Computed example of a mutant assay.
Amino acid sequence: MTRASRLSLAFTLAAAALLGAPVAEAHLIGEHGAGFEAGILHPLSGLDHLLAMIAVGIWAAQLGGRAIWAVPCAFVGFMVVGGVLAVTGVSMPLVEPGILGSVLLFGLLIATAARVPTVVGMAIVGLFALFHGHAHGTELPEAANPAAYALGFVLATSFLHAVGLGLALLVGRLAPKPVLRVIGGGIAAAGVAMVAAL
């Protein structure tokens, strides 16, 4: 078995393990809401947020140049805006479909290696970040320490972006280019399954 096929098999097994995770539990804080630790764990507990955040990092790496930092930063910034909108009582329609749709779209962007100007990439991820942020912001009042909780989920989201960036750079060095597109296709397929389950 070649190095590329071993790497592809490893990613396939990892994707299968991820698909066994709960889909939307990142949006069920309830009585478990606490502070910083809960904020850190929250984005890691739902497959929808997890895949979308990693996908943002992968796509940013594919775009290269300034997009490597600008696209993930745009996501985090607009996620905070979405959170503020929720906390101040501004409602947004279709929040959960928007979150699940982001998984599908980001996966497709990776699978097609879509090339857009950095500012367009920032706008695309920023739009969907509003949905993710609004979902988090809706849960903030239930947290024992909202500021610490918000800081935790911002840091966890940034970490997941970094995981995606690192994964893309590693695959770029160790495997043929199509492997990254296959990963994107797997993310998009997971998005389709999540949207279909709504």
Results as ranks from 00 to 15, higher is better:
residue 90 V to S: 14
residue 72 P to I: 10
residue 43 P to G: 03
residue 107 G to R: 04
residue 96 E to Y: 11
residue 191 G to T: 11
residue 161 H to N: 10
residue 59 W to L: 02
residue 159 F to T: 14
residue 120 V to A: 15
residue 85 L to Q: 08
residue 39 G to N: 09
residue 83 G to P: 04
residue 141 P to W: 13
residue 17 A to P: 00
residue 192 V to Q: 02
residue 194 M to G: 00
residue 36 F to T: 07
residue 120 V to S: 08
residue 87 V to R: 10
residue 5 S to T: 14
residue 184 G to C: 12
residue 45 S to E: 15
residue 51 L to Q: 05
residue 115 R to T: 11
residue 50 L to H: 09
residue 186 G to K: 01
residue 61 A to V: 04
residue 102 S to D: 06
residue 81 V to W: 09
residue 29 I to A: 13
residue 98 G to V: 00
residue 7 L to T: 14
residue 74 A to R: 00
residue 127 L to V: 08
residue 74 A to V: 10
residue 195 V to E: 02
residue 98 G to T: 00
residue 138 T to N: 04
residue 80 V to I: 15
residue 189 A to W: 07
residue 101 G to A: 03
residue 134 H to R: 12
residue 73 C to R: 12
residue 148 A to P: 04
residue 10 A to H: 05
residue 1 M to G: 14
residue 66 R to M: 11
residue 121 G to I: 05
residue 25 E to K: 07
residue 74 A to T: 02
residue 169 L to C: 08
residue 197 A to V: 00
residue 175 A to Y: 04
residue 25 E to I: 01
residue 127 L to Y: 12
residue 68 I to Q: 13
residue 75 F to C: 02
residue 118 T to H: 10
residue 125 V to K: 03
residue 150 A to I: 06
residue 128 F to K: 02
residue 189 A to S: 05
residue 68 I to Y: 03
residue 124 I to F: 11
residue 72 P to K: 13
residue 23 V to R: 09
residue 177 K to Q: 13
residue 121 G to A: 13
residue 181 R to H: 13
residue 42 H to T: 09
residue 36 F to E: 04
residue 103 V to M: 13
residue 17 A to I: 10
residue 33 G to F: 05
residue 86 A to E: 13
residue 50 L to K: 01
residue 28 L to T: 07
residue 123 A to L: 15
residue 47 L to K: 05
residue 60 A to W: 00
residue 150 A to K: 01
residue 84 V to K: 04
residue 127 L to K: 09
residue 167 L to Q: 01
residue 123 A to K: 08
residue 185 G to P: 02
residue 75 F to E: 01
residue 108 L to G: 06
residue 163 V to Q: 01
residue 22 P to G: 14
residue 33 G to S: 07
residue 31 E to P: 08
residue 23 V to P: 03
residue 182 V to M: 05
residue 43 P to S: 09
residue 125 V to M: 14
residue 57 G to L: 10
residue 4 A to F: 05
residue 91 S to T: 15
residue 62 Q to N: 15
residue 173 R to K: 15
residue 193 A to H: 00
residue 98 G to S: 13
residue 95 V to N: 09
residue 93 P to R: 06
residue 100 L to G: 07
residue 10 A to R: 11
residue 118 T to S: 13
residue 87 V to E: 10
residue 25 E to Q: 14
residue 60 A to G: 04
residue 116 V to H: 01
residue 171 V to S: 04
residue 88 T to D: 08
residue 179 V to Y: 00
residue 185 G to R: 05
residue 7 L to K: 09
residue 168 A to L: 06
residue 31 E to H: 14
residue 70 A to R: 08
residue 133 G to K: 03
residue 65 G to N: 12
residue 145 N to E: 15
residue 156 A to E: 01
residue 175 A to M: 09
residue 156 A to D: 01
residue 128 F to C: 09
residue 129 A to G: 07
residue 126 G to Y: 05
residue 116 V to E: 04
